[in-house]
Design a protein around this nucleic acid. Structure first.
Lengths: 154, 154
DNA sequence: CTTACTGCAAATATTTTGCATTTGG
DNA sequence: CCAAATGCAAAATATTTGCAGTAAG
């Protein structure tokens, strides 16, 4: 009778972390906590950036540990990741969600837009194909206002 | 009031290929033509798949040549690519466009939906942020109808 | 104690680059 | 001719995996 728990999390659940881990026979290690904290404080972060942050506190931590923890925490729904382009995956906490990423193909900058702007698309996709969309996972590519302006006067 | 001429190509332009190349002092090599042909016949193809197809005709062709040609033909607008998930980039001819890719996070399958379903989103993004979206470049992640159904009965 | 977890090194996957040689126009 | 393009090998980038030792509960 537990809710499917896959579209809205409590905005903040510090003890949910241990609960989720315990339920699966997993452990709370210093490295695991540091990875969560790093992602939470960085907002969006690549594995490499997470490692750098983690090593400020604990220099011995290995990159593969970061990858393994990001992966695992992602499976547990405690972290999420997005693909913002050619570069590496970026990770964030679910509470940092709520926006689509807009990647400009010209200048490469990533901006954010309210995910509610996609409600129409998400609704149509669900109606027509039954597909339940997560608009936050992939960026939308295009041309930002600035780059469109400079392209126009060419 | 002229359309910026960067969103719709003539559906098929075989001599446009040579024209585009000549205009930039570029050449039509056998490899280059084979890459275009391979992408056209494969629909969606990764660089590796393109290489395989190309080597059916010309076994000596190198993977880096494929990459270089995909990149260049992409810049010329003669090919397009999409990012469909963790795997490699996939390439297609512009005439094969017109759809959003829907990537199921559960089963990994990619389905297609009419890009017009995103007109509302594209319009809102343009109005609010000036961002000109290309919905075809990145997939939309989510859960397909089949996987949503099996998840529900868990 | 048990086994999940870690660090380390090596492997894998994808893409890019330097350079000597070939070739299209 | 000669700059564009290719093939080859090596590097760069992003991620995964095997394994022996460490540590959480």
């Amino acid at each position: 009778m537990n809710p499917p728990a896959h579209d809205s999390q409590p905005p903040d659940a510090p003890q949910g972390l241990l609960g989720e881990l315990h339920d699966r026979g997993l452990r709370m290690t210093p490295q695991r906590r540091l990875v969560v904290d790093a992602v939470a404080s960085l907002g969006h972060a690549t594995p490499e950036e997470v490692l750098t942050k983690v090593r400020e506190v604990s220099p011995g931590v290995n990159l593969s540990t970061v990858y393994r923890n990001l992966e695992l925490l992602g499976e547990l729904g405690l972290l999420r990741h997005s693909h913002l382009g050619h570069g590496p995956t970026t990770w964030h906490v679910p509470s940092h969600s709520g926006h689509i990423h807009l990647l400009c193909r010209a200048c490469g900058r990533v901006t954010e837009a309210d995910v509610a702007l996609a409600d129409d698309l998400v609704g149509r996709l669900r109606e027509r194909t039954g597909f339940l969309s997560d608009m936050e996972h992939f960026a939308v590519q295009g041309t930002c206002a600035d780059c469109a302006a400079s392209a126009e006067q060419r």
